[in-house]
Nucleic acid binder design. Structure first.
Lengths: 263, 263
DNA sequence: AGACTGTTGTTTTTTTTATAACAACATTAA
DNA sequence: TTAATGTTGTTATAAAAAAAACAACAGTCT
């Protein structure tokens, strides 16, 4: 029995996060390669110690990923991968549902010092988390959105969000270029030369987003590091960035070649 | 800081299967109760040792479930439960997708001694797994389905499947009663008295299903035990149950009051 | 006897959970 | 001012639990 090439660690990790142990993953993978194998064959294919194969198979049967023949020796048959994955996800899904309602109960009865929270400045790490928070804030915008950001970022992460706001806020966008349509109620200022000077030079900021003059999100990404962002509703913070925005807006009108698009 | 009532073990288990550790779950739950808490407060609410709170929070931040203020002391804010769960599921979903394609690759290049497998008899445990396999077999039926089962079972688990077969097989059903419509091409024999005698008395079988004279699935459920089933394409097995079916069918016509419905 | 299956214990290893100690800083009281 | 006290954030390390690995044995078949 050739052991086949052993499965990638990544695959096993993936199966682990679906609720299997390393052995369970190995045995399941082994069974997919050789449907109807005996315990000893599984041991040989998967590299799992023979004595450990039995309890592991028990668990897999229990989880409904494997069925057993009642021959001697026993033979085992694995659910095809698609169905197997669905089954594993089902188990997780039901847990997720339970946890969801349970946590919601806890959440609605929480104590929450809103007053002070507002003055705090929050850090967000990881580009995905930043994008999420940003999209949410833009989606919740009531009247006004101010943006300084390079177009690549807007295009890849924000384009749809900007068109899909419920309350049609007035948007002012300062960026380096623009493709396609401009959203309604929107002014796009395109700084054709050296946009970098404005916000990408020293401090590595790659974007400033001010929502309803009430919330700011500033993205900072220095090369090499994970991108991070700060988010606040603090007045001081807001004043600073509102001023900064006004300053930039005024500055580029005078010093740069600016093209204006109206939505 | 009142510790609040401690979260149910079930909730923590659910969150564990979503990829959190016990501590991570406790801290997240704690933060939901008291948004914007400091590490020490979290320790007090959640019961997690203070020194352990920090690395746990790191991981939660990493997973995008928590954001940090840059005050001193640091304050922490949890993603609301709905979004938190979605985020956790996203991580799992991407793993599931990866595992799915990866396993599929392994699966298509498997070696599979079909010849011998056909002669094996497989055991399936757990009612859900049994139902799944049964529904699949019925769905794949080509020409003929023979069923002996009590109507409660058919009604709760099989009703829709029987109406939705692609290839309109001829169906013969022996049962104890029937409600509503009868599927097309179907003969239902209703044994009005003592159906138990046929298949529920001693051996505790609660159903026999023969598909295309090619596969049999026999469900056995003794009270107290988990229901189990055997499934086979073995000729000997098939012969036995085909004969059994014929025997029952003949027997009840003569000894019992039978009502016949035609679909 | 020898090869193999299925089972049962018992280590070893790894991951989580728990405790302890420390430096940095702030607050209070003498 | 200094000493005493308390708090935060870190680090190291011990204990416990879960997984993984190994060893041994009885039964079965050849």
């Amino acid at each position: 029995m050739s052991p086949g090439k052993e499965p990638s660690g990544q695959l096993i990790e993936a199966l682990k996060s679906l609720g299997l142990t390393k052995y369970e993953a190995l045995v399941y993978i082994g069974l997919l390669q050789f449907d109807g194998a005996t315990a000893t064959e599984i041991h040989e294919i998967s590299g799992v110690p023979r004595a450990s194969v039995y309890p592991v198979l028990d668990k897999l049967v229990q989880k409904g990923l494997v069925i057993v023949s009642n021959t001697v020796p026993k033979r085992f048959d694995a659910l095809p991968p698609k169905k197997g994955i669905i089954k594993l996800k089902e188990n997780i899904e039901s847990d997720a549902e339970f946890a969801g309602t349970e946590l919601e109960n806890i959440y609605i009865s929480r104590m929450c010092p809103e007053k002070e929270r507002q003055e705090l400045i929050w850090s967000i790490s990881g580009s995905e988390n930043i994008i999420n928070r940003l999209r949410q804030s833009i989606g919740e915008a009531g009247t006004e959105i101010q943006i300084i950001s390079d177009y690549d970022f807007i295009k890849t992460h924000l384009h749809d969000t900007l068109f899909k706001t419920d309350s049609n806020p007035v948007m002012q966008i300062i960026t380096d270029r623009w493709e396609g349509e401009v959203p309604p109620d929107t002014t796009v200022k395109i700084v054709e030369d050296k946009i970098n000077e404005c916000f990408e030079s020293k401090n590595e900021m790659s974007g400033i987003f001010i929502i309803d003059s009430k919330r700011v999100l500033v993205i900072m990404s220095s090369p090499g590091h994970e991108p991070s962002a700060i988010f606040s509703e603090s007045n001081g913070f807001l004043d600073f960035f509102s001023n900064y925005w006004r300053f930039i807006s005024y500055h580029i009108d005078r010093k740069h070649t600016v093209r204006i698009l109206q939505g």
